[in-house]
Every structure is written in C-alpha cells, then in structure tokens.
C-alpha cells in the first residue's frame, strides 16, 4: 500500500504492507527517533502525536493513519532550537540513557498543550504510559514542573 502522511509538518509518501504497524513504518523510513521498546502498548517509547492526540504508534495500523498528521520528538524542537520541555529535561538531569525520553517528552508536551498548569497528580497521570528504568521518575517529574513554569512565564 501507499499513503500520504504529514510528518513533522512535511508531506511524506510512504509505502507499506497492509498489515504493517505505524511504528515499524516510521522507523523503516528513517524516523528512528520513534523508539520501540515492547510492541505491546506498554512502555510508551513509541508514542507520537497523531492528529494532535498522544498515541502508542505500535498500536496503530499504518493503513489507518494515512492522511493524518504525525508529530515525533523532532517535530517539537531540534538540537539547534529545542523546545522548552526538551531544555527542562536537560537542566533537571531527567535524561539518563534517553531511550524512553522522546516518548516521555512528547507525553509531557501533550499534557501542557491541554493543561498548562498541571498539579502533581495530573503530571503523573499524563506520564502513566511511559516506562523509564533509569531515573526513578523523580527528575522527570521535576522537568515537567520546570517546563510548565517556564512556559507560563513566557506566554
């Protein structure tokens, strides 16, 4: 099959098999910033924004995502002009191995987009689909709070 996707703002025509999972199609086409940790919808390393909703790309058929808008971690900021959320993760020391981090940062970004002033419980709930084995989540939590504060100040 073939389909047009809008990935990080650019139109991409990708070909794939009818039963292919979106995660695999993205990775096979160079979007390797979307990580694959379990293929079970459990670890959250593969989350993306699909039509502005945070989803596990391992739980979506590529065929069902044709025409949709996809945002990966590279779509919210890059190494030259990072998003405040990415900067907050760096500053708080919330990045250890970093494998889960693209997913975690996107989940946090998605949270603040819908709820710019989350309380602790809301932060935890928003990140409940992202496993991290390195940090113990302490500094991840700090990072989201810091980013929320910064982003509120800069509005």
């Amino acid at each position: 099959m073939e389909g047009l996707f809008i990935i990080n703002g650019s139109e991409k025509k990708l070909s794939f098999d009818s039963g292919d999972i979106l995660l695999n199609v993205l990775r096979a086409n160079g979007f390797t910033e979307v990580k694959s940790g379990c293929h079970e919808g459990q670890c959250g390393s593969c989350v993306i924004l699909l039509n502005e909703e945070l989803v596990n790309s391992c739980q979506v058929f590529a065929a069902a995502a044709v025409g949709k808008d996809i945002v990966t971690i590279k779509g919210i900021g890059d190494i030259h002009s990072p998003h405040p959320m990415q900067e907050a993760f760096v500053e708080t020391g919330a990045v250890q191995c970093g494998f889960c981090i693209p997913g975690v940062v996107l989940a946090a970004y998605y949270l603040l987009k819908n709820n710019p002033d989350p309380d602790d419980e809301e932060i935890c709930r928003a990140l409940d689909g992202n496993l991290c084995r390195c940090t113990g989540y302490v500094k991840i939590h700090e990072a989201v709070k810091l980013a929320a504060k910064r982003m509120a100040e800069n509005v």
Partner: peptide, 11 residues
C-alpha cells in the same frame, strides 16, 4: 549530561 539535549531532541 553532554548527550542529554541530543537525546531529548531525538538526534
């Protein structure tokens, strides 16, 4: 951490 920004931006 010297690789933290590149990790957080997916590069």
């Amino acid at each position: 951490k010297m690789d933290s920004l590149s990790l957080a931006t997916g590069t």
